[in-house]
Amino acid sequence: MIKLTTPISEKDIRALKVGDQVLLSGTIVTGRDAAHKYMVEDKPDFIRPYLLDGVIYHCGPVVKKDDSTGEYSFVSAGPTTSRREEPYQDTVIDEYSIRGVIGKGGMGDRTAAGLQKTGAVYMHAVGGAGSAIAANVSEVSKVFMLDEFGTPEAFWVINVVDFPVVITMDSHGNSLHKDVFEKSEKNLAKLLGKA
């Protein structure tokens, strides 16, 4: 098991390969559909310091607000399907110098090329493991665009401790998702009597 803490250097990221299991700690930022469109179209500056050599997490959490202190905490916080950010991800990685993208389901060729170019990896978390992953979130330190985007789609700046992820796309052009797709496509052809 490899331990990494944000901010992460390009050298450390380039050393990772598909199949590596990582425990991630430090500050990361949640951002999904509305956030990615916004980062490409409006290029907001407020989120730059949290993403520089950092990690963006495709996640729309369930959040609890403590009415007396006004503090937020995550109740359930697993990954959302990453594929929807495919049109935006490579631009976002490059624009904000991001080193890691956490999500589920993997991403396509365009993102794979972006990871290779900038020096970043795709980290897969377990989809649906909302309660377990929330236990790895030690603090919710800031939120941006909460009113505009709503709870699931806001930028939540959080601190995580030993968040378990698997590298499924590395910075050298390898993708477990591509491998599984190609293998399963061959199996499908056989089962359909086409091979």
Binding site: P61, S76, G127, A129, G130, S131
Partner: peptide
């Protein structure tokens, strides 16, 4: 007693 998945 928390959501299994954050996407309820």
């Amino acid at each position: 007693s928390t959501p299994i998945c954050q996407d309820t």
